[in-house]
Design a protein around this nucleic acid. Sequence first.
DNA 1: ATGAAAGCGCTAACAG
DNA 2: CTGTTAGCGCTTTCAT
Lengths: 335, 335
Amino acid sequence: MPSIQDVAKRARVSTATVSHVINQNYPVSAQRRERVLKAIRELEYHPNAMARGLRTSKSKTVGMIIPDITNPFFPAVVRAAEDVLNHAGYALLVGNSDNAPRKEEAYYRAFREKRVDGLLLIAAGGPLPPEYLRNHHSEDVPVVFIDRYYRGIPADSIQVDNVSGSYQAVIHLIETGHHRVGMITGPLSLGNAKLRLEGYLHALEEHKIAEDPTLIFEGKFDFRSGYERAKCLLDQNPRPTAIFASNGEMMKGCLQALGESAVRVPDEIALVSFDDFDWFALGHPTITAVAQPMYDLGALGAEILLKRIMNKLQGRPRKKVLPAKLIVRESSKAR
Amino acid sequence: MPSIQDVAKRARVSTATVSHVINQNYPVSAQRRERVLKAIRELEYHPNAMARGLRTSKSKTVGMIIPDITNPFFPAVVRAAEDVLNHAGYALLVGNSDNAPRKEEAYYRAFREKRVDGLLLIAAGGPLPPEYLRNHHSEDVPVVFIDRYYRGIPADSIQVDNVSGSYQAVIHLIETGHHRVGMITGPLSLGNAKLRLEGYLHALEEHKIAEDPTLIFEGKFDFRSGYERAKCLLDQNPRPTAIFASNGEMMKGCLQALGESAVRVPDEIALVSFDDFDWFALGHPTITAVAQPMYDLGALGAEILLKRIMNKLQGRPRKKVLPAKLIVRESSKAR
DNA sequence: ATGAAAGCGCTAACAG
DNA sequence: CTGTTAGCGCTTTCAT
């Protein structure tokens, strides 16, 4: 693999000149530039990013830690971030934390060793920050939290208006005639799960419906817990007439449970999901859902990070909240 | 950010000794080791991977280029690869090619500059390899093709038995009584799309059913084309009694089209998809599908790559073909 | 068992 | 404009 030395030799110039041609940061005579370009082509020279990075202490790489790329919410966010980052000349390292702060920490360390220029984080746990993050210097390596964050870490964050999304969903159910709305929350240690519960409670309150603890079950944001909590809800007596699941994966679990119990939707029970997966519009019945701006979450998150990396954004951490939008479909049709 | 020098100074040893402690490749007296370890802890020292990489010419990083992380087939593969790679101490860079060889090439170059130790590739186009890959030296940086490959590139590959999967699906439809089976193929420039068509044709042949060109439409492996081709199929007269879609995204398009046309499944038309998405088991009706071993595809691909990187695997390129399995559900129930 | 020192490939002063 | 050179942080001979 040819180095800048080889190019310099072949073009009969110094390595500095080659560097100047490559980086276009210093003037080079047209004649010499041509010679260099020719040598680069002939040798198929590609600069060694590790050497460059060592010298400049910039890796042109960003790390992103997400819970699980297998949950369709996250790929959408990753894709957006990757688009923006790639456009700006940055590569993206990804890691799956499986919502385990320990795994998150392992990736954090690995990425720091790689000297990533910035970090995109969808927090694995919460609300308290893990030790390793408390010791992190954001001025050093900027961090942007996406969707979920840890309290008390001075880093930018971008989120969805969870309370409003949830509130809209439940108001819609109530106004459709449902007064017994079952709620499957996410892990209440997570900020966004708590906020979604809050939106639910607000909606009930607004309509003077008493909170019924037998209708609220805490899930884990995964298929299995969605399935199990839905079973619990179906066992209640009287049964809720509607179920609001705090994320898409748990809604899948609900659908599984309802299928097994042969409960008809929406005739016997109405359904609303936080998270709008594309296939919700395709099934029978189609599923009413709170759509999150997944692409914006990733794209804006990446943009903020880039600004921090380039010092175009200074001062206190910014917190951006994006709107969520209810999309009414068949699963919550009036009965 | 502390360097190995700082550690050495603090522990009153040479940098060589620190290196030996970290890499455990040379003996170090217990006493000095302790001193070094203590210094590392106190300084929160983390080795600089770029410097190490520059020295060893190993980046401990692998690049993976996939068409689009937003198509649920790919995250499953990525996740598997990432698990295996991470376990072995490698980080993963990802890029989305959008099936465009030009984008693929851009990522290829970027990853090479980063001096990735290996490349996982789900080919963007085909069947002929792009120029840049023809000039690639696999002995230098090993490449493993996953799912789709370019002809004539001497690299390992791991794929699914597309012909068999497709064949099983269509045989099943025929045996369920369907003699007019509509086929939506992928882009026939792609090897796997062609093979899936082959399986379809084999099945017809086997049952002495004449190939009907008005029942075969070439799609693009995306939602939109699935939707449009399904419309075309519904316009045929007489209409096919079943549709086989060559991938999951196009099946989604079909479902959209069928929904709009209010055609009932499976009563009026049967459906089978190549690709089994988890929600196919949840809707009404549930969707019959050819399940691909997505996790194995990624995990085994990564394992082969690791072997190549470590020179545990020598000689000619290996080609591994994994079985696909038909899962019969309601969408293809006998009428 | 330990340390001195070379050098991986590059950029950025600096001198000319 | 162009070339010389120091040095980024690390590993690895090579002496000792």
